[in-house]
């Protein structure tokens, strides 16, 4: 597969970091602002497509990507299973418990009919398992989309089926 012109390559190099940052932000802030694992993962996935086209790089480590994909899904379903230790499937066993990772207690919010609705300016490390699941879905989507793009790229440029 051929590389593209120096203009495209330079722009890709410049755009790489901002797009990656934006995608990561969408994933990590998924529990606070619009977005989440899938949306952020799709953004980073398109970044991989841009990289692949600009540099003609098809020597991706497909095995590693597929392992990351499976691991992302396993972390997701595993987190849901861990909720069973607190009594319910998908139970948010980290949120609001003071656990250092994503377990920060919510300070602001209001109580409506006995249900606590947190306000929008909640801290980043506050949502418990939701953030963990966002990150795992994000990893899964990045790996999955990249795999698809690499397989399509391999097929388009070498004529051989590249999917594992």
């Amino acid at each position: 597969m051929e590389e593209m012109s120096p203009i495209v390559k330079t722009i890709t190099k410049i755009a790489f970091a901002p797009i990656f940052l934006f995608g990561s932000y969408i994933i990590l802030h998924g529990h606070l602002t619009p977005g989440g694992g899938f949306q952020g993962g799709a953004i980073i996935g398109t970044l991989m497509a841009l990289y692949l086209i600009a540099f003609g790089a098809v020597k991706w480590r497909k095995k590693l990507l597929s392992i990351i994909e499976s691991m992302g899904l396993l972390v997701f379903i595993g987190t849901a299973f861990l909720g069973l230790t607190s009594g319910y499937f998908f139970f948010n066993f980290i949120g609001g418990t003071g656990f250092p990772l994503f377990g920060e207690k919510l300070q602001t919010g209001e109580l409506i009919d006995g249900v606590f609705f947190p306000s929008n300016n909640a801290p980043l490390l506050s949502s418990g398992t939701i953030a963990v699941m966002n990150i795992s879905v994000g990893l899964e989507v990045i790996a999955g989309l990249t795999l698809i793009i690499v397989a399509m790229g391999l097929f388009a440029f070498t004529g051989k089926e590249g999917g594992e």
Binding site: S66, I67, E69, S70, M71, L74, F76, I77, G78, F81
Partner: peptide, 10 residues
């Protein structure tokens, strides 16, 4: 089935 499906590729 979901857990087993996700772990099958590994």
């Amino acid at each position: 089935p979901l857990l087993f499906a996700f772990a099958t590729p590994l």
